[in-house]
């Protein structure tokens, strides 16, 4: 365990010293820009747009961050021969792989924490401005209080926290997937491209699955069926993680639904790590 944490913290340190967190400036710029542009809209829509943009940006940034960071790890370590010095110590390949993955997760955690804080600060600041303006319009009294309550209901919603956790889970799955790909890939560009392609296919996978299970697709030829079945079994279903959209719109998502999605994500991470380990342990270095 101490070896895994040593590798994990070393990986995080590497990414931090490579200044990957500078992308946060871009994120902050988006949050501020959207808050500024949205200020002309009716308040309900304003918060909506802000939440939508912030969670959307969090989702993209965390996907790009983990995919790029993970895809670089193995090729870079092999090229720099740092891998040899590490594995020549009493460190098993499983410990090495888990350490690297954990390091990426630490990075993801820190990055998402920073983004969430920025987002909540922007949301809170906007809320305060809108409340001040509302109070000025209505003056004190029950009308004003009701209006402020309406503003508060539209702004922050506790469901946003699980939404961020779901984004984390989805990105964690993407990281494990990328690590698995890079355990046999020979260049990081290949890994990144395949990751992005799988990410996109993962969003249309349910269509293939449905057509396959329906057994009466538009094209019942056996080649087509084989293709649909292969797609359904090999590719992940990322659409199931898209309950974030519901939360942005303000719909309630029951706790058991969150639970199932987390469990599914955990399953993906486990399987991808396992397969990645099998590939990696048989790889000639």
């Amino acid at each position: 365990m101490s070896r895994i944490t040593a590798i994990a913290s070393n990986t995080l340190l590497e990414l931090v010293r490579q200044k990957v967190f500078y992308f946060m400036l871009l994120f902050a710029a988006i949050a501020i820009g959207v808050a500024f542009v949205a200020s002309g809209m009716p308040f309900a829509e304003q918060f909506q747009v802000l939440k939508d943009a912030a969670l959307g940006a969090t989702s993209i940034f965390s996907f790009l961050l983990v995919t790029l960071a993970t895809a670089m790890i193995l090729p870079k370590e092999i090229e720099d021969r740092t891998l040899y010095t590490v594995l020549a110590k009493p460190v098993s390949r499983l410990e090495y792989l888990l350490g690297k993955l954990l390091g990426v997760y630490l990075l993801l955690f820190v990055a998402m924490l920073l983004m969430s804080v920025l987002f909540f600060v922007a949301l809170f600041a906007r809320e305060q401005l809108v409340i001040a303006a509302t109070l000025k319009d209505y003056g004190p009294g029950p009308d004003g209080e009701a209006a402020v309550a309406a503003v508060k209901a539209a702004a922050f919603n506790w469901n946003l926290v699980p939404a961020i956790l779901i984004i984390f889970t989805k990105s964690a799955v993407c990281a494990a997937l990328t690590l698995m790909l890079s355990s046999f890939a020979t260049s990081w560009i290949f890994t990144v491209m395949i990751s992005v392609v799988i990410y996109i296919i993962g969003h249309v996978q349910p269509i293939a699955r449905e057509a396959w299970l329906a057994q009466s697709g538009v094209n019942p030829s056996s080649v087509m069926k084989l293709f649909l079945g292969f797609t359904s079994l090999v590719f992940p279903d990322f659409q199931l993680f898209n309950i974030v959209d519901e939360i942005v719109v303000g719909n309630a998502v029951p706790g058991w639904m969150f639970g199932q999605v987390f469990a599914l994500g955990l399953g993906y991470v486990f399987i991808y790590t396992l397969v990645g380990y099998i590939f990696f342990s048989n790889r000639e270095l």
């Binding site: 988006i30 959207v34 949205a38 747009v49 939508d52 943009a53 969670l55 959307g56 940006a57 989702s59 993209i60 996907f63 959209d245 942005v248």
Partner: peptide
């Protein structure tokens, strides 16, 4: 992912 940004 980009959807939300485009919608905004």
């Amino acid at each position: 992912g980009f959807r939300a940004v485009v919608a905004t």
